[in-house]
């Protein structure tokens, strides 16, 4: 049996309470333990708002959220945050420590972790994001990508069972980004860390177990990447699928179902052999 670590029912939220227009309307979904879910949608569709609601940084107007079996409300939000961690879209002005190391340790100090274990956790997190060398630097005086790593390390050190990433890797160079995604994938598979990743990178989303698609504050679809990209032709598909569609328009022999890169390369090999 797979346990549901995140359950959201009939969630409603608006920033402006005088306004009838809601930022999020009637959102329902759940996430299983160990799942990797990508959240996609246009700028302003409500992704970051949803992320902040999940960790109790914003208060919902209606509906309910349950994390690791705990019903989220004002009294439980601190307990809930021991299970779910959010890495913000923008790390600027989020730093509390005067050194990278202190900043990463901050969350652990807050939960009164014994010194030795805290040290180990900080060490491990810094290593994961490749920041060990900069541990004594002032986090506010780092490059953009370095700041994003500090923010990520601070949450990883907490080892949350649910990790929410709000475009948390956009400012990393492609190599570091691939490496970090791999590290996260390992955590996801080996220690069942559930990952909810908000992203505009459709190739990253295509790798997820499931995609949640937001449109103007509504959850309009939830399904396997291949299904979501086939059904919503207005979405920018991953590269291989975009290429398949372009070829299909010119040649009828091209298959007309969604293709991953591997499937496309295999098909090209076969069609080449037939010639």
């Amino acid at each position: 049996m797979t346990a549901r670590v995140v359950e959201v029912s009939n969630l409603v939220f608006g920033y402006d309470k005088r306004d009838k227009e809601q930022t999020l309307t009637d959102i329902n979904f759940s996430v299983n333990k160990g799942e990797w879910v990508a959240v996609i949608g246009h700028n302003g569709s409500g992704k970051s708002t949803l992320a902040k609601l999940l960790v109790g940084l914003l208060e919902m107007d209606d509906g309910s959220i349950s994390i690791a079996g705990i019903n989220l409300n004002d009294n439980t939000k601190w307990e809930v945050r021991r299970h779910i961690g959010l890495v913000f879209q923008n790390p600027e002005n989020q730093f509390v420590g005067t050194t990278v190391q202190d900043d990463v340790a901050f969350g652990l100090e807050n939960i009164n972790m014994p010194y030795e274990e805290m040290n180990n956790r900080v060490e491990e997190a810094l290593k994961m994001v490749d920041l060990s060398e900069l541990r004594f630097h002032d986090p506010s005086r780092l490059s953009g990508g370095q700041k994003q790593r500090v923010a990520l390390a601070g949450i990883l050190a907490l080892r949350p069972s649910v990790l929410v990433l709000d475009e948390a890797l956009v400012m990393l160079d492609p190599g570091s980004r691939r490496e970090l995604l791999l590290t996260l994938k390992q955590l996801n598979k080996s220690s069942d860390m559930t990952i909810i990743s908000i992203t505009h990178d459709m190739d990253e989303a295509a790798e997820a177990d499931r995609i949640l698609l937001l449109e103007a504050g509504r959850l309009v679809d939830s399904g396997k990447p291949s299904d979501v990209f086939s059904k919503h032709q207005q979405l920018e598909p991953p590269f291989s699928e975009a290429l398949r569609r372009m070829l299909k328009r010119q040649k009828n022999t091209v298959p007309d179902t969604y293709m991953t890169e591997e499937e496309l390369v295999n098909w090209l090999c076969k069609s080449h052999l037939k010639m």
Binding site: G41, H42, N43, Q89, E167, V170, M171, H200, M202, L235, E236
Partner: peptide
């Protein structure tokens, strides 16, 4: 960075 694919 941060723009949706179409917007970008």
């Amino acid at each position: 960075a941060g723009l949706d694919p179409r917007g970008k």
